[in-house]
Simulated scan of single mutants.
Amino acid sequence: MLTIFEKLKNIALDIDKAIKNEDLGYSEHQNATGDEQLKLDVVSDTLVEHHLSDLSLVQAIISEEKEEIMPVNESGKYVICYDPLDGSSIVDVNLSVGSIFGIYEAGNLSGSGLRAAAYIVYGPRLELVLAVRGRVPRHYRSGARGLFSARSSVSLNEKGKLNAPGGTQKYWSPTHKAFIDSLFAEGYRLRYSGGMVPDLHQILLKGGGLFSYPGTQDKPKGKLRMLFEALPFALIFESAGGQAIDQEGRRLLDLTPEHIHDTTPCFFGSDYEIDKLKSAYGIHDG
């Protein structure tokens, strides 16, 4: 596993360089779910593939940008699912973006098979957060000569102050709108950039809050993909002392996708916000 983590640091440095120097325009292609690909999406995907495809520990890699699984080493222990550049559409306005990685047991692409997760933030500083199942997440920052140094462990308070509500508001259900309004009525601060990684990173480092992407009229199964986005962040949030559920109250880590590109409604937060969400949605534990 340490070999994989070292590769993630190299990936971070290379994609950070690409963001600063590569063409930001659209390519002539679409990704696996029909979204137009930016040239930077393609470059980032190629860089991740280059770094991960020579690891003996890795049986296969699965990119959000590709339809099919890419075999690497038949005897490998892990399958790595990744979003090479989450939030790429906001790079052109110079907002922070990120990469997300889920490291799964070979043969078990599900929440229960997720052994570790990581994300990278490309912003004013280059940062990396790693979580291994059963351990508190660790926060790293790149410094001189590209070396990453450990900053601190990551933990959530019982209650936060930040509210990051995703999805087009006109398609929200009345239940969800009333719930989000109730958080703002309590004094929560809006923090939503259009990039999942920087928004969740802010909640984690500020000690709490809520990120929500519900099922909506236009996307009843949500927008965020289980293997590449929702499950890796679920592991990170639970490891930091928070919760991650869908809108029926199920732990995201209890879910198993039927297809590698399946999506799910998802909510990540501190205990207070998730418990308040369950109450608003009429969800009863047990």
Rank of each mutant, 00 (worst) to 15 (best):
S75N: 15
L95G: 09
S149R: 05
A280N: 06
K66V: 06
S193E: 14
Y140M: 00
D271P: 01
H139V: 05
S182A: 13
I19Y: 07
T256R: 15
R251F: 14
I245G: 01
P124S: 04
R151H: 06
D218Q: 08
Q59K: 15
L183E: 02
D35C: 00
S193F: 11
E28F: 12
T175M: 03
S110K: 12
G241Q: 06
N108M: 14
T46L: 11
P124R: 08
R191L: 09
V72I: 15
I103P: 10
L277S: 06
A280F: 09
V91W: 02
T33L: 09
T175D: 00
T263I: 00
P257C: 12
H51Q: 13
H201I: 10
D254F: 07
F267V: 08
M196P: 03
G34S: 09
R191I: 05
F211D: 01
D181C: 04
M226D: 02
Y281I: 09
P174V: 11
T33A: 02
A18S: 13
Y82N: 12
E6S: 15
M70S: 09
G160T: 04
P124G: 05
G160C: 13
V58M: 12
S53K: 10
R145K: 11
V93G: 06
L227V: 04
Y213D: 15
S75H: 12
K66Q: 09
I283D: 11
Y171G: 02
Y104N: 05
N10Y: 11
V136L: 02
P165D: 01
F179C: 04
K161C: 01
G76R: 14
K206P: 00
L57I: 09
S96P: 14
K219C: 08
G146I: 11
S152P: 07
G194Q: 14
I283F: 11
R151F: 00
Q30D: 02
E105D: 15
G187E: 00
G207R: 12
S99I: 11
Y26F: 15
K17D: 03
M196D: 06
A118D: 03
G166N: 07
Q243G: 01
L227G: 06
K170Q: 10
A230G: 03
E49G: 07
Y78M: 07
D86F: 10
V42Q: 14
R189G: 08
Y213R: 07
D41Y: 04
R250D: 12
H50S: 10
V48R: 11
G222Q: 14
S212V: 08
N157Y: 03
I283R: 08
A116C: 05
K17S: 04
F268T: 03
R115Q: 15
K66C: 04
A240T: 05
H201P: 00
H176S: 03
R191F: 15
L126G: 12
H139E: 03
T46R: 08
A131D: 14
L252I: 14
I103K: 09
V129L: 14
V129T: 15
H50C: 04
G123A: 13
K221A: 04
E229M: 04
A164E: 01
N163L: 13
L130Q: 06
L162G: 03
V79C: 11
H261T: 14
M196H: 08
